[in-house]
Computed example of a mutant assay.
Amino acid sequence: MSLKARITEDMKTAMKAKDSARLAATRLLLAAIKQREVDERIELGDAAVTAVIEKLVKQRKDSVAQYLAAGRQELADAEQFEIGVLSAYLPEKMGSDEIAAAVAAAVAETGAKGPADMGKLMGALKPRLAGKADMAEVSRLVKAALAG
């Protein structure tokens, strides 16, 4: 079953269970997926759907920080709930050791030697790690590998 089909089924389940918060979060996700499909005139695969989910999670995390800074705990809690619902559809995140191993393998493959090769290295890593690893963490480890 595709990720999009799983999300649709979860939306139907939330409707039947009258779980309005979960229903709203899944509808929001499906609307974002549909918007991207309409904009690009394509049917999104699991990798593209994962990218949409990651974008929505990142937006929610930014909102939580802003709500907490403004002293709006109830709004931050609502955003945290949505992060939980959305994160359930993301693949398991890799640990730091796994990311470091992937960076080391990519350095060996590409022959990257210095900071000038960072783009080449990130280009090789992004398709492999997208959705499975925090790309900010990957970038930090790549910089460390190329500096040393």
Rank of each mutant, 00 (worst) to 15 (best):
residue 1 M to L: 13
residue 1 M to I: 11
residue 4 K to Y: 09
residue 6 R to I: 07
residue 10 D to P: 06
residue 16 K to F: 14
residue 17 A to R: 15
residue 18 K to D: 13
residue 19 D to M: 10
residue 20 S to D: 05
residue 20 S to H: 04
residue 20 S to I: 13
residue 22 R to V: 02
residue 23 L to F: 09
residue 23 L to T: 01
residue 27 R to E: 15
residue 27 R to A: 10
residue 30 L to W: 08
residue 31 A to E: 12
residue 35 Q to D: 13
residue 36 R to A: 07
residue 36 R to M: 11
residue 37 E to R: 02
residue 37 E to P: 03
residue 37 E to N: 03
residue 37 E to F: 04
residue 38 V to H: 08
residue 40 E to F: 11
residue 42 I to K: 14
residue 43 E to F: 12
residue 44 L to M: 06
residue 44 L to N: 02
residue 46 D to G: 10
residue 46 D to Y: 05
residue 47 A to P: 02
residue 49 V to D: 00
residue 52 V to G: 07
residue 52 V to K: 03
residue 56 L to H: 07
residue 56 L to I: 07
residue 57 V to H: 00
residue 57 V to D: 00
residue 58 K to R: 15
residue 60 R to Y: 06
residue 61 K to Q: 11
residue 62 D to E: 15
residue 63 S to K: 15
residue 65 A to W: 06
residue 66 Q to C: 12
residue 67 Y to W: 12
residue 68 L to G: 06
residue 68 L to I: 12
residue 71 G to C: 09
residue 72 R to E: 09
residue 73 Q to T: 06
residue 73 Q to W: 10
residue 73 Q to M: 11
residue 74 E to W: 06
residue 78 A to N: 09
residue 79 E to Y: 06
residue 80 Q to E: 15
residue 81 F to V: 10
residue 83 I to E: 00
residue 84 G to Q: 10
residue 89 Y to P: 00
residue 89 Y to M: 01
residue 89 Y to K: 00
residue 91 P to D: 01
residue 92 E to H: 09
residue 95 G to V: 04
residue 99 I to L: 02
residue 99 I to S: 02
residue 100 A to R: 09
residue 101 A to P: 07
residue 104 A to S: 09
residue 105 A to E: 11
residue 107 V to Q: 02
residue 111 G to D: 04
residue 115 P to T: 14
residue 115 P to K: 07
residue 119 G to V: 02
residue 120 K to I: 04
residue 121 L to G: 00
residue 122 M to N: 01
residue 123 G to M: 06
residue 123 G to Q: 08
residue 124 A to S: 09
residue 124 A to P: 01
residue 127 P to Q: 02
residue 128 R to S: 09
residue 128 R to F: 07
residue 130 A to V: 11
residue 130 A to M: 11
residue 131 G to C: 04
residue 132 K to H: 10
residue 134 D to K: 05
residue 136 A to I: 12
residue 137 E to F: 11
residue 137 E to D: 08
residue 142 V to S: 01
residue 143 K to C: 01
residue 146 L to A: 08
